[in-house]
């Protein structure tokens, strides 16, 4: 039996097909201004790359912010359930899943089956999401990729007073004017956002093992700050950006068995 998971993220749409518990193929498209077209395209690509037809796919489950808008999906599951399921597929020892995307941060406590027991969310405010780091790297005029790396070279701890991304941008500009090294500013930014994520995680409890997924998981500066804040080394699954789609495909597979 083949099932599909579609993760309708705010920025990138991901599609993943599984056959009897094995991942067949993964594709992604930039959501842009026509997310449904992008979803259609990613799905068609996945189907053709897997060498199957649309009719071969028994169930299609959608997740992510725009999940309810996918016309060809059979059902939807929340991002929280999808991430927990997806992470535990490759890392069964995980009990806490942290997800930090462009517009949201989430912490999920789950059992050994990937069933959600508790969760906390920060949404609708850039201070607790990946957009914060993006805005700061722009203010510092350092590409996002480099921004994460240079942060690791700093040994200083500069506090950031502003919580709001708009005010923090002005603070970063003042630090630049005060000739503060860019690496130290980058670390201050990552420490600031990590501390907000840590207190969100505390609300569900820091139960080992802890996994980090979402776009920000690819930022080594953030991961380092988070590890220090949690006092735990987080696991970053390979293909972390696909865990939502994987979770959705797995839940679709469970539905197929019933």
């Amino acid at each position: 039996m083949i099932t599909a998971g579609i993760d309708m993220g705010a920025k990138i749409i991901k599609v993943l097909l599984i056959k009897d518990g094995e991942v067949l193929v993964k594709t992604q498209e930039v959501a842009g201004f026509e997310p449904l077209e992008a979803a259609e395209k990613a799905f068609d690509n996945a189907v053709s790359q897997a060498g199957v037809t649309r009719e071969d796919i028994k169930y299609i489950f959608a997740t992510g912010a725009g999940r309810s808008a996918v016309p060809f999906a059979n059902d939807t599951i929340t991002e929280v359930s999808a991430s927990a399921k997806g992470v535990l597929f490759s890392h069964p020892s995980v009990r806490t899943v942290i997800e930090v995307g462009a517009e949201e941060g989430r912490a999920v406590k789950c059992d050994e089956n990937g069933k959600v027991q508790d969760f906390a969310i920060n949404e609708k405010c850039a201070a607790g999401a990946g957009s914060f780091t993006e805005a700061m790297s722009r203010a510092l005029e350092v590409p996002l990729e480099e921004f994460g790396k240079i942060s690791l070279t700093s040994e200083k701890s500069i506090p950031m007073n502003a919580q709001c991304a708009v005010f923090a941008e002005s603070e970063v500009v003042s630090l630049v004017h005060a000739k503060t090294p860019k690496a130290d500013i980058a670390k201050a930014v990552h420490d600031a956002i990590a501390s907000r994520i840590v207190s969100m995680v505390r609300r569900v409890g820091i139960n080992k093992d802890v996994a980090l997924v979402g776009g920000v998981s690819r930022n080594p500066g953030f991961v380092d700050s988070l590890n220090r804040g949690l006092e735990v080394e987080v696991i970053v699954p390979k293909d972390a950006e696909y865990v939502g789609a994987l979770g959705a495909a797995l839940v679709a597979g469970e539905r197929g068995k019933k």
């Binding site: 406590k109 508790d118 907000r196 207190s199 969100m200 505390r202 609300r203 569900v204 409890g205």
Partner: peptide, 18 residues
Amino acid sequence: EDHRKKIKYDCAACKPAG
């Protein structure tokens, strides 16, 4: 004063999700 802009985070320990 230095806590007023982050009480959501400072109070998190006393407000578990469960």
